[in-house]
Every structure is written in structure tokens, then in C-alpha cells.
Simulated scan of single mutants.
Amino acid sequence: MNKQISILLSVFIILFALIGSLVKTTEVAPANARMIVDHSHNVYVSPPCFNEADVSNFLEEVTMKDALDMGYRPDSSCTEESLIGESRSLISLLFETVGLRKGKWDRDGEWQ
């Protein structure tokens, strides 16, 4: 009985590793990702693109969800592209979830 359970567990692990390495997912900015909104131009800027942005001084730090709820749009293609991460396997996603690998954002929405 123990040998059968061991064999089934081994097969499950092998199948999980195979499927997990073949299936891909794309990381996107979480709802709590930090954004800077420009209330004068009704746009949002991601922190990595802030130095290149042409913004006024009527700024506020909000979450991605808040910026979208306000109906604001990205200030540039830099911001749009920064909100999409790299393609990764399900195993990589699992490693990020348990903290063994860093993603583009941490659990608090901070850019890494």
C-alpha cells in the first residue's frame, strides 16, 4: 500500500512539474500597485516612468485601482508597458507566491 502511494505521489509530482513548466501566465500590475496621478491632466504614471513623465504639480499617490476608478489613463507608453510583467511559468508563479522568487511587485503593491 505504501509503495502504491509513493508511486502515485511521484507521478503527481512529475506531472505537476511538467505541466507547471509548460503553462505560461503573464504578470500584470495588481490592484494595489502604487501609482502617481496627475489631477491636472487626468493621467496616471507608474513610478519607474515618473522621471520621464510630463506632469504638473497637482500630484497624488494612489493605487492602480483608484487611478482606474477615477477614469484616468496612462500618461505614456512607458507606463502602459511597465504595468505588464514578463511571461512566466506556473512554477515561477508558485515560487513568487511562496516568496522564493521576486516578481515585479511585492504583496503590498510596491515596485521592486
Rank of each mutant, 00 (worst) to 15 (best):
E27T: 14
S46R: 00
L22G: 03
L9S: 14
I84W: 12
T97P: 00
A53E: 00
G103S: 14
V55G: 02
L18M: 14
N57G: 11
L15C: 15
S6R: 13
A53H: 04
L22H: 06
H41G: 00
A31P: 12
N42T: 10
I84K: 15
S46K: 00
S6M: 10
Y72R: 12
I19A: 09
C78A: 10
C49I: 02
M35V: 09
V55T: 15
K65C: 01
G20V: 05
E61K: 12
R73K: 14
D54K: 13
R107G: 09
K3Y: 07
G109W: 09
R101W: 04
E96I: 11
E80M: 14
E52A: 11
W111A: 10
S6N: 14
R34H: 06
V23F: 12
L22W: 12
F12A: 15
E52Q: 13
I91Q: 01
D38V: 06
L18N: 04
E110Y: 05
N2A: 10
D54E: 06
G99P: 03
E27V: 11
L9R: 09
R88W: 01
T97L: 02
S40I: 03
I13M: 11
Q4I: 08
G85R: 08
E80H: 02
L100W: 14
A31T: 10
F16Q: 03
K65Q: 15
F95P: 00
I36L: 08
L18C: 08
V45W: 02
M1R: 09
R88P: 01
H41D: 09
C78L: 11
H41A: 11
R73V: 14
N51Y: 05
S76A: 12
M35L: 15
N42Y: 05
T25Q: 06
L9Q: 09
S76L: 08
Q112A: 05
D54G: 02
T97R: 05
S89I: 06
V37Q: 03
K65V: 04
A33P: 02
L100M: 10
L15K: 03
S46C: 01
D66T: 14
L8I: 03
F58K: 14
M35C: 07
S10C: 09
F12L: 14
A29M: 07
L83K: 08
F58Q: 10
S6V: 11
F95W: 09
K24W: 04
I84E: 12
